[in-house]
Computed example of a mutant assay.
Amino acid sequence: MSLDTTWDTTALQQHLAAHPRDARAHYQLGLATIGGIHPSEHHAAVLDTALRHLHTAATLEPALHCAEVAALLVQDAALVRWHRQCPALDHLEQRLADRLSPAEAREITALVPAPGTAWWEALAVR
């Protein structure tokens, strides 16, 4: 997986129109939709779109753990707005985070900047 953080959302949408079962493209579009902005700063519709693509990627390819972790990070970071984010990962959540390669963790933390959240911190040390 490359660390290209300049994914073109229009090109990804067009690709998915022709290849709706491409899990990697759903994953990339989910991250690109967040676009390097803290999830708590997005409107609900943007978060819903990003999460739909991340969940679709995880459903289409269950071994694509980075999609599931990215969705959990987006959800946790969005809760910052209401001061309700996860205080710490439990051991099962930490095991899931540990399944990601350092490159996958860097990719997610670059595109979903949410320092101070439990998921982001778990990925940042990878």
Rank of each mutant, 00 (worst) to 15 (best):
E93Q: 15
L64T: 01
C86T: 12
A110D: 15
Q85G: 08
W82A: 14
W119T: 11
L79Y: 09
V69D: 04
P102C: 08
P102Q: 08
Q75Y: 04
D98I: 00
P113M: 14
V80N: 03
L64C: 10
A58T: 13
R106H: 13
W120N: 10
L111V: 08
H53R: 10
L111N: 15
W82N: 15
A67E: 01
E93F: 04
C86E: 15
V80G: 02
T59C: 07
L54C: 07
Q85K: 02
V74L: 14
P102E: 03
R81G: 08
H65S: 07
P115M: 12
R95Y: 08
R52L: 14
H53T: 12
T59S: 06
E61I: 07
T109N: 05
A50I: 05
L73K: 03
D98E: 12
H91T: 09
W120T: 07
L96Y: 00
W119V: 09
D76C: 06
D90P: 10
W119H: 09
A114T: 05
A122M: 11
A105N: 03
I108A: 00
T59W: 02
T109A: 11
A58I: 04
E107S: 03
L64D: 02
R52N: 14
V80T: 15
L79F: 09
P115I: 04
E61Q: 08
L96H: 00
A63D: 15
P62E: 14
A78N: 02
A77P: 00
A57F: 12
A77K: 07
C86A: 13
V74G: 01
Q94I: 09
D76R: 01
H53Y: 04
G116T: 06
L111Y: 01
C66T: 06
D98T: 07
L64P: 02
V80W: 13
W120M: 03
E93W: 04
A63E: 14
D76Q: 10
R81V: 07
T49P: 03
E107K: 05
Q85T: 05
D98S: 13
Q75G: 09
E68N: 04
L64A: 06
P102R: 02
H83I: 03
P102W: 05
